[in-house]
């Protein structure tokens, strides 16, 4: 998937192989679900090859459909003219699964950051939100305990999230961050809300147990009332 993953575990009695298992799982996910690997399950399904759909792939496809329906099609893993691309769901889902591996190994206080998406166990952890226009600065700091934080943004790479309703890049927001009980929800909700544009802020804030921080295209800052600002 090509993003850096960092892990900090504060419990002393957690064996190092628990961390190895996390990275092994994430490599497995990359091999199986990357839309950029010709032999991945996702590419084979996208090409219409006969394929026994694994339980994991079924779960991912179910999540894609759930968020597509919840956004009226703004979030869509099957855009016309493009191959199947469930990345927005796979990332949060797989990193949350990795956090589950750590918890099963006895870790209680850890912080797992995968390309800017964060699972914080125990806490409070102080989670900065990257400034949408400057990778070296923050625009907010959150205090997060036993929750996940994900941010979707138009960074230097430009428009990479499309509004499935129009097929055009979503441009209403510069950055949108969701705090939720799991990274599965935080990441998918952040991407889906970003695809919705300005209306995505209220959409994500209305989801159960979701809090939102957003910067719109006019550089206006919007926050849900329960956002855990540090």
């Amino acid at each position: 998937m090509g993003f850096p993953v960092s892990l900090r575990v504060d419990d002393e009695d957690v064996p190092e192989r628990a961390a190895d298992a996390v990275f092994a799982w994430l490599r497995e996910v990359d091999a199986r679900f990357s839309p950029f690997r010709e032999d991945s399950e996702v590419c084979r399904l996208g090409r219409g090859e006969p394929l026994e759909i694994s339980a994991d792939l079924r779960e991912v496809l179910g999540l894609c459909e759930e968020y597509r329906a919840a956004t009226g099609g703004a979030f869509d893993a099957r855009l016309p003219g493009r191959g199947l691309d469930p990345c927005a769901v796979v990332k949060g889902w797989s990193v949350q699964r990795a956090a589950g591996l750590l918890a099963a190994a006895g870790a209680r206080r850890f912080c797992l950051n995968a390309g800017g998406d964060v699972v914080a166990a125990g806490g409070p952890w102080r989670v900065g939100v990257r400034h949408p226009e400057d990778a070296g600065r923050l625009c907010a700091v959150l205090a997060v305990t036993d929750a996940a934080v994900a941010t979707s943004a138009r960074y230097e790479r430009g428009d990479h999230i499309l509004d499935g309703r129009t097929g055009r890049p979503a441009t209403g927001l510069l950055s949108l961050t969701v705090v939720a009980p799991t990274l599965t929800e935080a990441d998918a909700a952040a991407t889906a809300a970003f695809a919705l544009g300005r209306e995505g802020v209220a959409w994500a804030a209305a989801r159960p147990d979701c809090e939102v921080f957003a910067v719109d295209a006019d550089r206006k800052v919007l926050r849900s009332p329960g956002l855990p600002v540090a």
Binding site: F3, G116, V118, V127, V129, A135, R157, T177
Partner: peptide, 8 residues
């Protein structure tokens, strides 16, 4: 402790 939305 960490940064959300860091890098792609």
């Amino acid at each position: 402790d960490t940064v959300s939305g860091a890098t792609v």
